[in-house]
Structure formats: C-alpha cells, structure tokens
Amino acid sequence: MLASIIASGLALGAVYALIGITYNVMFAASRVMSFTAGQLGMLGGVFGALFVGRLGVPGPVGLVLTLAACAAVGVLTEIIAVRPVLASLEKHLYVLSTLAAALLIQQLTAIEWSTEPQPFPRLLGLGSGILDEKFWLPVLACAAVIGGLEWMYRRTLVGRAFIAIAEDNFAARALGLPERRLRMASFALAGAVAGLAGFSSGQLLLAFFANGAMLNFYGFVPVALGGLGNNRGAVLGGLALGLFQQAANFTVGGVFASVLVFTVFIVVLLAAPQGLFGAPAVRRV
C-alpha cells in the first residue's frame, strides 16, 4: 500500500507542480494569475491522444506537436484574455477574462473532442505495477522542466530578460527590453510546460475535457504553498500535495480526502500566508 501511495502520489504531485510552474511563468511576465493553466494541461493530454493515439504520429513527434499546439494556445490566451486587461490590473479583471478563456477552452474541447474520457496511448511500453511508465513519466517531466527553467533563467540572455521583466516591468522597458514579445514568449513557454504535464500524465489522467478544472484547482495549491513565483517551492508543494492527497485517499476515501487536503491547505496558509517557501515581499523605499 505504501509503495502505491508513493508511486501515484509522486506522479500526481509532479503534475500539480508542473501546473503550478505554469501559473508562475505566466505570472512572472504579466503579474496576472491566468486560470487557463489547468486547461492548458488538459489540452496536453487531448492533443497527445489526438496526435499519437488517433493520427498515429510517432511519440516524439507527437510530443513536439503537442507542445507547439499548447504554446500556441498559451499565446492566444495572452492576446485574448490578458493583454486587454493589463492596463487595469488593480481591478483584477483578469480573473474574469482568464476564467472566461478557460471555460471557452473547456467547452470547445468538449464539443470538438468528446465529453467522455478518451484513451491515451502507451508511449514507451516500459514498466508495470508501481513502476509503470504512467507513474514515473510525470516525475521525469517535472525534473526536466525545473532543470531546464533553472538553466534558462541563470545561463541564458532570454532567461535573464524574463527575470528582468518579472522583477521590474517598467525598468526593463526603460532598458529597451521588448516587454510585449517577452510576455508572449513566456505565455508560449507556460503553454508548453502545461502541455508537457498533460502529455506525460496522459496515461494516468486520460484525455478528458473535465481534467482542466481539476488541474486548475489542484495546480493552484502548490503555487500558494510554495510562494507565488517560486518554481522550486511549487515543485516541493506539488509533490507534498500529491503524496498527502493519495495518503488521504487510502485512509479516508475520495470525498473526505478532498476535505482533508483543503483543511490542511487552509491551516498552512493561516500559519504562513506567503507560502511555506516564499518570503514576504520587500520593497525599497
């Protein structure tokens, strides 16, 4: 039982962490919490099942196409739901616009894809039982993403430009950084990260339009636990959430497990409002 809790807990935790990173990447470039993150994750599973399962595209090509498609939807989100409300961030209109975009994505998927879960093809055919690829692929994807993002932010010019935009939008623009293009690029990156989450967990979550709302919800928890904008915190928060949720599922069952998870979540936030791994915001005056 313990092995099963760890296997599925880590897998789900990795997916939640990736969605949390998606929230963070979009937030860093725009100061907007885009509630399309979970829907982009859902699309990763749907596009993967479409390309690899239905159209018979080889797995690696299917992955590239899925990431590209999700990146495109990410950019579209920026154009449709984020850019128009950036001028009045203090009114929090982005909550409405990104939720509307999320609903649009969900309904379109339900109409064009299916209202029932669809199978996701086996990708590598490796492992069985608790070592099945459906459990370790999301963990591998999460490790690859966090490693890749760390490398990009620390070692590349583009990564440093992203950080500059996130740190001080106005100063970055004054220095001549193309803020709009960088913001679009970060939404594309966020789309690709969420797409990878959906693709790597497709065998576990299936290609199901209703996964979007679930991922939106549980993917937000690591962000709150780990501290907004803190990717490493999101990973730790996500994995902790996945393990705790599965342990609660085993001990008290599905519905009560959700209650337990959110009780603990609220208690943690009451104790540490900035998140377990976040620091209180400090501004030089």
Binding site: S4, S8, L12, L204, L205, A210, A213, F250, G253, G254
Partner: peptide, 8 residues
C-alpha cells in the same frame, strides 16, 4: 476525474 482508484 480521480486518476487512481487503487485506494478505493
């Protein structure tokens, strides 16, 4: 949408 029903 629960991905794993093993616990149940």
């Amino acid at each position: 949408t629960q991905p794993d029903v093993t616990p149940d």
